[in-house]
Design a protein around this nucleic acid. Structure first.
Lengths: 231, 231
DNA sequence: CTGCGGAATGAACAGCGTTCAGTTTCCTAA
DNA sequence: TTAGGAAACTGAACGCTGTTCATTCCGCAG
């Protein structure tokens, strides 16, 4: 009998409409201006009804963040394809930066927002992030193989350095911390080029990536003082 | 007559106690958990009284952000002094990163928080930020003069690149976006070294800093596509 | 001592996330 | 066809938020 299936379908549809409403609201008015009551009004349910679909407001944003990772993944896939591996890398990371501009609210949710301390391994979005990062690491490996980056470079480490470095101008840009007239795009471009040049220089790096499935790899004790640079 | 002076003093003292309470609360419990009512309770005033000292909650945090800039300025001053200009630079930026860890809430308020869109030139904290950045730019100039960085490097541009690049690992670190066991310190160190190496490489940079008092300098139109890198 | 002005207050408004008793709806089983 | 029961949904409430405003209080000036 298809009754159970129809019920499941309806339930899934309501759940989806909650996420649709939440996404519309938070893309249009920003994260802070989304409330359970506004979502409820938009889908024509009572606020309390939402709590039988999501345990709380945070979980709605977890779901949206997961969607954000899929969107970013798609964006990067679209940007990829340049035959020159280094330019391909450039394009991918520039797409990452553009994502922070074009999908500001998603970006904030995925990489900046701090309202929920539970952004850890148990969060499903973390897996999506890891998968996406792995794909970019493969692109970096191609640049290494092509001789554009030193063979001493661990692609996972380079990945994290690029990710962290580019997150900076993205954050400063979408939180309006630059001076009047200063162009976040130019800054992001310069950070990208500078980081690529720095990686090319073959500086010895110390970061220990937590490879998926290789959690046993011991992390080096972190020095507390100023980093000694014995190059 | 000293009555007016005493009144002014008292008024200033209450204002200061509001800021003290707000700072204590937000350092201890985080930005999101500070409420006007909690501040009021702590200083033993009614919530409404606070509104005769600050126009709104945002302005209290503006004042705290300004204090954050002073604190960061002091932190960087303390870190400075190494006779080697390049190591001096390293120490200063490492102090910047450590500030993001040790004074997480201040850092967030100063560089990440987005709750108030009015972080522009009219904001007094912006001036403090500019002054601080100018001092760091002078340190960069010294590295250039000593031959550690290319003479083609504009110190204001290098400053912004370093600032933006290091903001990334700081944000990822204090928003817990790294994987379990991954060390934000190591990532920040690698970003710093990679950026310094990249700047040493003399890559042509495109950012146009808005120099204090030189607002007339026309900003280059920002290209919309992928940055062409004609090195 | 009176009057005035600024400071402080209590109460309220509108909104928030969340909970829960109670109602409605709909499917199943007799 | 109808009774039972489970699931879905709701209205009302709790305690919280930032903010406003009429009122009260207090200290100084005349």
């Amino acid at each position: 009998m298809g009754i159970r299936e129809r019920q499941d379908r309806e339930r899934h549809a309501v759940r989806a409409s909650i996420l649709d409403a939440a996404r519309d609201l938070f893309v249009a008015e920003g994260y802070a201006n989304v409330s359970i009551r506004k979502i409820a009004e938009r889908i024509e349910y009572s606020p309390a009804a939402i709590y039988s679909y999501f345990p709380g407001k945070d979980d709605i944003f977890f779901a949206l963040a997961a969607e954000g990772f899929r969107r970013l993944d798609d964006t990067i896939k679209d940007a990829a394809g340049d035959p020159n591996p280094l330019q391909d890398l450039r394009n991918c990371w520039w797409a990452f930066y553009l994502f922070s501009k074009d999908q500001r609210e998603f970006f904030h949710l995925m990489f900046v927002d701090r309202s929920v301390p539970a952004i850890t391994e148990q969060w499903q979005g973390f897996t999506l992030l890891q998968q996406m990062l792995d794909r970019v690491a493969a692109r970096i490996q191609r640049s290494i193989d092509a001789g554009h980056l030193p063979t001493s470079l661990n692609p996972q480490v380079a990945l994290h350095v690029l990710w962290a470095a580019l997150t900076g101008p993205a954050v400063l840009g979408c939180t309006c911390r630059l001076g009047p007239g200063e162009d976040p795009d130019a800054l992001a471009r310069d950070v990208l080029e500078t980081t690529l040049a720095g990686l090319s220089a073959g500086t010895r790096l110390t970061f220990v990536p937590c490879l998926p499935g290789a959690h046993a790899a011991a992390a080096l004790p972190s020095p507390t003082g100023v980093p000694a640079h014995e190059g």
